[in-house]
Amino acid sequence: MSGATLSEALRAARGGAVPWSRGLVLPFALALVWVWSIHVGWLSSPLAIQPERILLAPFDDAAGREIWRAIAASVLRYAVGTGIGILLGLALGAAMGLSSTVERASGGSFHALRQITLFAWIPLLTAWFGNGEASKIVYIALSAFFPVALNTATGLRNVPTSYREVSRVLSLSRRQEIRRVLLPAALPAITIGIEIALISAWIGTVGAEYAIGNGRGIGTFVSEGREQFRMDIVIIGVIALAATGYLATRVCRRLSSLALMRASGLT
């Protein structure tokens, strides 16, 4: 097969529009195999659960119905923790990005702490803040804090020199320079930092709930389901945490981009 025909075949394969419904074939096939193998008796463990059990669990089951309040509790916790983390991250990131003294003083410590896998903070946090709400909030805030601080600092520091020269030529005050030049120029980097923070804080929320275990929350819900060997509850919980995370990060992304646009005068 010559390269021309290979690449032409590739092109032809890519060229035609493929109906997206083909993407549904595999999930349905897998679900069928799943149902069928339980039906035939291949999967006979108590963990082999019919798909409809999973979908019904949040409605007709006492333990399953807890999921709604768990979601609400997690979202609230996520909002509080993420808010605190993003604000602190913006503050430290801005300080490091705008002042070389702050950068030099705290950059090393910041990057050293950043190396520690976030999850490894949990034992220390629970020792300091107890096995309750405070530890979870601090952990969520921490998960949001690092990406925001990092991206804000690098975003501000990487503003092209040509822009800084313009503000010098226009003899802008430092305040004006920050508001009119540096902040808008660093905005894309800051936005990326916040987007990463939103995702990492949601995983942090579930992780903290799962690991610490007290109180209500989607992570606790799943963890309890596992302890009771309830596969239906675990799976619906995991689906809920993925879906809630997707929606929550999307909503927050919108809100934060609006807030940032306003802050940098781009509205």
């Binding site: 963990l47 995983i203 579930v206 992780g207 799962y210 799943v222 963890s223 389901g225 596992r226 060997f229 596969m231 675990v234 799976i235 919980g237 995991v238 689906i239 945490l241 993925a242 995370g245």
Partner: peptide, 12 residues
């Protein structure tokens, strides 16, 4: 689905 979500399923 994050790895953390897979964990309880895989644990079971």
């Amino acid at each position: 689905i994050p790895s953390l979500g897979w964990l309880p399923i895989l644990l079971l």
